[in-house]
Nucleic acid binder design. Structure first.
Lengths: 340, 340
DNA sequence: TTGTAGGCGTTATCAA
DNA sequence: TTGATAACGCCTACAA
């Protein structure tokens, strides 16, 4: 079907060895031959067969990312941006990006990772949505499979990662809210053993203590990172006898739910109550009111992660294995900066 | 490194041939042998090497999808849901999903498709965001590479596809708006040679004629499918001497931009003006006001597409090659159904 | 500077 | 019912 290296060699009257070396840029072929080979290969539309090359080189030239899909209406814009960053960087090194889906923390997920590892389907993994103690981290590390992650688990294992600093920005948000007179501050997080929950909740507590506001456990709730989850939890909180007037949300999606709940409950966001998200999704510029959020440069983070992973795979040392990124705080209407 | 079929064979004192056949479920191995083989293979954690199998079988057991990424802050929730559907279905047949990114309609995109085809990297493609005349359709068809697509191009080529019917729903929306007294109806589309633009614009025109409203070319504009694009175009339209009071948008993202522009221009959406989107993204339930939109079951569509593609690849005939889906219309606040 | 030959791990054909 | 053997397309010692 396709054009193989043998076809090219025959057409040129050369051996496949020479053709192979000419194309791979070895220096033991004459300049003249190389040029002929390159031209003819191009003309014939030759592209090396991936499977053959992989089999021979014992590398897959691809990186894997398993989407923590959570059921049928799974649609967090977070992942579009993340995947597109991974893809753009991978393509630069002519690596493939292999994607699959599995609900996080389940048996299916384990099997998928194991299958990909055993069958050499990918040379390394990109992880995110880490758990405080994460099976994947321990497993991949025990199998000596390169991987990188957004966020870090508590496992005492050395691996490259990118983390987004959240204490400063969350503190700034809360200070801003408290200064505006919103002192009853709630936190809506996610599953409590996710690192992003732990990190952001931790930042929340620190910020409260800096502002000398006592932590009221009633105002700490967990949703599931979706708008629906945020909506439901916010409703419940707003019905309290002494409801919060400030909401710090673990991510933007959760905050969208809060905005809606507030509206339904007749609260004017930015005036009666204030709300903040975390992610910096494009959509957050278009909510009503616009959402105060912490902008993680997700696309760049994804590219950085893919780059680190590929470096790790080809054994190139990284100058920095644990990158910490300072996100940009966007104070917008939802935190009361402007009364509209 | 990994466990190979040879290791399993040696441990069992059988030939690799027998092991291979036992595992692949051929019926010319004794029941007893098969059981022993399966047990031991499982114990040893044997998984067939993908590259070797692909090389031998001349199939990649994977399908490809190239994201039409448009620069760095590309994040349309559309794609999260789409990819997650493709992934979930592919995994059912133990197919891989290979993802890459390339700006639509550019040279890079062509090269990427060609490389994947030549190198047998994937057995087939899923396409979307088709152009009225689409190079990919003609190319893949000329190379006899299976592919399926969401939407259909005008190329006279037979290929499996899923289309979302839009005339009925857009007509219903416009009727609803016109009945509500909003007669100056604008259309904000995308690049005009995209099939989704052509289809939805066509539906828009038909609906106007049904409602006996003359088409005012001034009220037809093109954006770029993003919120920012919708925002800018809406601003311009709202500044007209005789501005529209109804906006039909090609997708939800565009509509988000319109909502924001309207708000900034002091228009009360659902009262002064009405707005509709198209996609049915989860986010649209959480805008303020909630967005009237046409809900395409994207996750199911993606699964269906992946299923059709795999059937096509393994040569299984499809009972229906051109599926047309009736989306569900969600009339919400932005079209004036409730005054809040 | 070029060519020969062996093998990566599977599967499929044929013979036993 | 099983086993030896030859590919699949590529890369790379080693030999020429």
């Amino acid at each position: 079907m396709g054009v193989s290296i043998r076809d090219v060699a025959e057409k040129l009257g050369l051996s496949i060895t020479t053709v192979s070396r000419a194309l791979d840029g070895y220096d033991d072929v004459s300049q003249a031959t190389r040029e002929r080979v390159v031209v003819v290969a191009q003309e014939m539309g030759y592209t090396p067969n991936r499977a053959a090359r992989q089999l021979r080189r014992q590398r897959a030239d691809s990186i894997g990312y398993i989407l923590p899909s959570s059921g049928s209406r799974f649609s967090d814009p977070f992942f579009s941006e993340f995947i597109s960053g991974l893809g753009d960087e991978a393509v630069k090194y002519s690596y493939d990006l292999l994607i699959s889906t599995a609900p996080g923390g389940q048996l299916d997920e384990q099997e998928l990772y194991q299958r990909w590892v055993h069958s050499h389907k990918v040379d390394g993994f990109v992880l995110n949505r880490l758990w405080l103690s994460d099976w994947r981290v321990r497993y991949l590390s025990s199998q000596h499979i390169p991987f990188v992650s957004l966020e870090r688990s508590d496992d005492p294992i050395d691996y490259p990662s990118v983390q987004v600093e959240c204490i400063d920005s969350i503190t700034a948000i809360i200070k801003h809210m408290v200064d505006g007179g919103y002192q009853r501050v709630a936190f809506i997080g996610g599953p409590s053993n996710l690192t992003i929950h732990a990190d952001r909740y931790d930042a929340f507590c620190k910020a409260l203590s800096i502002c000398r506001i006592p932590l009221d456990p009633v105002l700490v709730a967990s949703a599931d990172l979706t708008s629906m989850g945020g909506y439901q939890v916010a409703k419940r909180l707003l019905w309290l006898t002494d409801p919060p007037n400030a909401f710090i949300c673990i991510n933007d999606q959760t905050a969208y739910g809060v905005l809606r709940a507030a509206h339904e409950e007749g609260r004017f966001v930015g005036k009666d109550i204030v709300v903040s998200g975390f992610d910096g999704l494009q959509e957050s510029l278009y909510t009503q009111p616009t959402l105060t959020t912490v902008d993680q440069p997700l696309y760049e983070i994804a590219r950085h992660l893919a780059g680190m992973l590929i470096a790790e795979i080809i054994g190139q040392p990284l100058q920095e294995r644990q990158v910490v990124i300072q996100p940009v705080l966007h104070i917008r209407e939802s935190s009361g900066d402007k009364v509209t």
